[in-house]
Nucleic acid binder design. Structure first.
Lengths: 213, 213
DNA sequence: GACCTTCTCACCTACGTGTTAAGC
DNA sequence: TCGCTTAACACGTAGGTGAGAAGG
């Protein structure tokens, strides 16, 4: 189940031709994907950038839904960045059973979900199985991953595992985990587009001061 | 119903001798109460300080509950601060039908509610009936108010009004609304205890620079 | 004038960034 | 040495404070 192929936003399990998921910031994701997206993992947890945001449509307006995200392995390899490109560097760690990140608005009506952008920007990626698991997804560094969306028609978040799912995945959101950026092109894209990294931009702003020690 | 007397944390409606609510930061509340608590109201909304935080006990661990706050008039007067004390300054505005502020964790199991401090620190007090009502409670300035807690045994937040409530209120959380602090003693308590006002403390830290204009 | 409200401001808290140096 | 990880850091975003001046 977890290793099922991606499907570019088409549904996988329940045949429900109406339900659709649309990825936001698609141009931005494509730029990163073209360069080879990297996501930082830290002990305390690091947000994804670009943020994972979607638009839902085709839901039953009155029914209650839970919306979840998980992140699954794309393959069984460990990767390394050498001579300017990513190559396979041996066998990967065993796939961990992934926890679902339940969107905090769950459960809500179809009408509510479709009325606004659904954002998973609070998800944090970590490489450490610490005590504080809340909102964190544990991944192995230097591995390749695919984020996915699951939609369940239910009122009860605690029973989400027993219900039938609609699962969506976008190939342009695949990324490799790192503890420090490997590809300078990726670093530049992050700095140029993430508001929190504005301090590192050099377009007109004064350059960064070097550390004094 | 809205003008029912306060009850110092004892239950009012449903006789359920097990259910209890305990006010956090009681000493701090008492200090403010002794001075005559004032809470700022602004157009954009201002948080309460001290923050309204409670501990719940005696709930059925497996049942689902919604927890809400509202703020009701204590009397029909308008107040003024003159010669160092609060006095009645005429007839107050008509009591507005208060909206409940539903705690964002609602609905949750009794076990969940009892496992942690329940905080309403995100509630904002406003004197303006603007467009953005989310999380704001509209009050009239220079009036006296009592915050209250309501607990409903239900799974569905949308039907909370039709269910039977358990209501709790703590006399030491009564306050008067202001647009600017009237009693210097209150100002001092706010500055000394609210971390966001640390810039105005004078115990060892350098004094505040005067405005330059 | 007296009283209350509104707005801007300097100064905080809290936390999201990539960098850098040190650790393993 | 080399590759990867960690922690401290400067510099942002975002937003909560009372002070003070201006407005009504």
């Amino acid at each position: 189940f977890y290793d099922s192929p991606v499907n570019n936003g088409q549904l996988m399990e329940l045949p429900d031709p109406k339900m659709q998921v649309q990825l936001c910031d698609r141009e931005l994701w494509d730029q990163f994907s073209k360069a080879g997206t990297e996501m930082i993992v830290t002990k305390t947890g690091r947000r994804m950038f670009p943020g994972y945001r979607i638009k839902l449509s085709g839901l039953d307006r009155d029914a209650k839904y839970c919306v979840m995200m998980d992140i699954v392995n794309v393959d069984d390899h460990r990767y390394k960045f050498q001579h300017g490109e990513w190559t396979i560097a041996g066998r990967g760690e065993p796939h961990l059973p992934q926890r679902f990140f339940l969107h905090p608005d769950s459960p809500a009506t179809g009408a509510k979900w479709m009325s606004e952008i659904v954002s998973f920007h609070k998800v944090k990626l970590t490489n450490s199985v610490g005590r504080d698991v809340d909102g964190k997804i544990v991944l192995n560094s230097m591995h390749r991953y695919q984020p996915r969306i699951h939609i369940v028609r239910t009122n009860d978040p605690t029973r989400v595992h027993m219900q039938r799912l609609c699962t969506f995945a976008f190939p342009q959101t695949v990324f490799i985990t790192v503890t420090a950026y490997q590809n300078p092109e990726v670093t530049k894209l992050k700095i140029d587009n993430n508001p929190f990294a504005k301090g590192f931009r050099e377009d007109g702003a004064r350059a960064k001061k070097p550390r004094t020690s």
